[in-house]
Nucleic acid binder design. Structure first.
Length: 183
DNA sequence: GCGGAGATTTCC
DNA sequence: GAAATCTCCGCG
């Protein structure tokens, strides 16, 4: 939660053979393995979720609904199963490349959703477990801009109605009035 | 080896 | 508002 808030304003960059693409994080959701029924790591340590139990700074990527990838930043500490889902970016780098990948020219729609972010940046499960802080990593998180507390809005998370009491927890954070936040 | 679940997107 | 569509996990 604290970390999800801090991630707003950071830059997420993916370098590939086609070039670099990335943007500033404007929307994120926190997931806590220990108590959160919406979290994949909630009483479910195995295969896909293993990386979430590691210390922070790694990428957790998974495929959902057979067609879309979602990107998460593991926040640690080790053994907890915590992660932050990146839901939206404000495009900054590699606009052409992202437009090509997303098959749209509308910059506003390039990264306004978890699946779109991965498609625009070319993130797949091949990027699972990458170190987000290492200087030589193709996928990196970089401090970019500080978002004033007054501009951060907290709401319940999206599409987790099944999580019972956890569904109402205000763990979705986004930048107020930013055009690139998902609806 | 099989069946179901799933943090979405897009188009009618 | 519904359909599209696939991988991983759990169980037999």
């Amino acid at each position: 939660m604290e970390l999800a808030r801090k991630l707003l304003g950071c830059l997420l960059i993916h370098r590939t053979l086609d070039g670099a693409a990335g943007g500033m994080i404007v929307e994120a959701e926190a997931y806590v393995g220990a108590i959160d029924k919406a979290c994949h790591a909630y009483r479910n340590r195995s295969g896909r979720t293993e990386i979430m139990y590691h210390d922070g700074g790694y990428a957790y990527v998974y495929l959902i609904y057979g067609m879309h990838h979602c990107f998460n930043a593991v926040t640690g500490p080790e053994g907890e199963g915590n992660a932050v889902l990146i839901r939206a970016l404000e495009p900054v780098i590699g606009l052409d490349l992202m437009q090509q990948r997303r098959h749209t020219k509308t910059v506003q729609h390039l990264c306004s959703g978890p699946g779109k972010v991965c498609q625009a940046l070319g993130i797949t499960k091949n990027e699972y477990g990458l170190d987000l802080c290492a200087a030589d990593s193709p996928l990196r998180l970089i401090r970019y801009r500080h978002i004033p507390e007054a501009l951060i809005v907290a709401t319940p998370r999206i599409n987790v109605a099944y999580a019972e009491e956890a569904a109402a927890w205000p763990w979705r954070f986004y930048v107020k009035d930013n055009l690139y936040v998902s609806k």
